[in-house]
Write a protein that binds this DNA or RNA. Sequence first.
DNA 1: CACCCGACGTCAGGCAACCTGACATTCAAT
DNA 2: ATTGAATGTCAGGTTGCCTGACGTCGGGTG
Lengths: 156, 156
Amino acid sequence: MPASTAPTTPPPPPSPCRNLPQLLGDARRWFEEALLAAMDAAGGPPVTSTQVQLFAVLDAEGTTVAALARRMGVTRQTAHQAVHGLVAAGLLEQVADPASARQRLIRRTPAGERAHHQAECLLQDLERQLAARIGHDTVEALRTALESFWGPPPTA
Amino acid sequence: MPASTAPTTPPPPPSPCRNLPQLLGDARRWFEEALLAAMDAAGGPPVTSTQVQLFAVLDAEGTTVAALARRMGVTRQTAHQAVHGLVAAGLLEQVADPASARQRLIRRTPAGERAHHQAECLLQDLERQLAARIGHDTVEALRTALESFWGPPPTA
DNA sequence: CACCCGACGTCAGGCAACCTGACATTCAAT
DNA sequence: ATTGAATGTCAGGTTGCCTGACGTCGGGTG
């Protein structure tokens, strides 16, 4: 598609050709694909998107399955099976809660801790790439806009 | 890792409690859930998230399945089955392309046209709700940031 | 104290979306 | 005419998420 580099203004979108939800989805997909690819390239235990998301909502002190489900916005059962996979992979462990026997806390194993740290580094790198493309302050504006509406995470 | 935290380190945003991909996903989910709920409440043919997404990338002149797949970022097969469902629901139709016999153009039926228009109205309403919560210019900043990186839609 | 209701964790079955593999058809090059 | 690429389609399999149904524990109430 060479043609002449149009010196005129690019086609002004009379109607937003790409609506917001779609843009949001593409952005999310970009992050996720890059992160998974990088994690996979770095070797180690296999990771899926849901597992990464689960790690993101994990608490350092230990969290119950139900709380994880709430934070992820899925059912307890879904969170349960995600946790199950991570436990099988050796990245998480379930310990009995001393406070109440009906709760079992989910915590990271040392290997899980390592994987988590690695993922965070990768993520920051991605963010840097993004900032290099669209400008640091634009990234900040993006984050600010998102947090101003979807900021309050259900801490429960 | 701990120990000497440089005295100059800014403590306020050391760790973004909600990372960007997660925020993006939540935002997308908010839009999608609200849209699907509204569409469902308005009755009419059943709609799923993928079908809505397919409609969003549909072209008025008619589009091939392969082009749809590229725009959606999925395989031809996935796009095919999504189209199949919509055709069965009476919202889409496949017509032979006069230009080449190996392409079949996908177009909206009158019913599909109606559904599409309805979805667009609902979406604009959602955007208005968002603007009312976080401010109109913030929404614009959000859209600008997203388009500046993920803007170029594969028009092919 | 006994009892019941709520929350938690878990197993089982099912649905929807997406994928890879394979094949026939059709056009554009050589 | 033959080869190559692109399209549309069918078949099978994987994964994530869901609803439904239990068994269990703990805090209420009488």
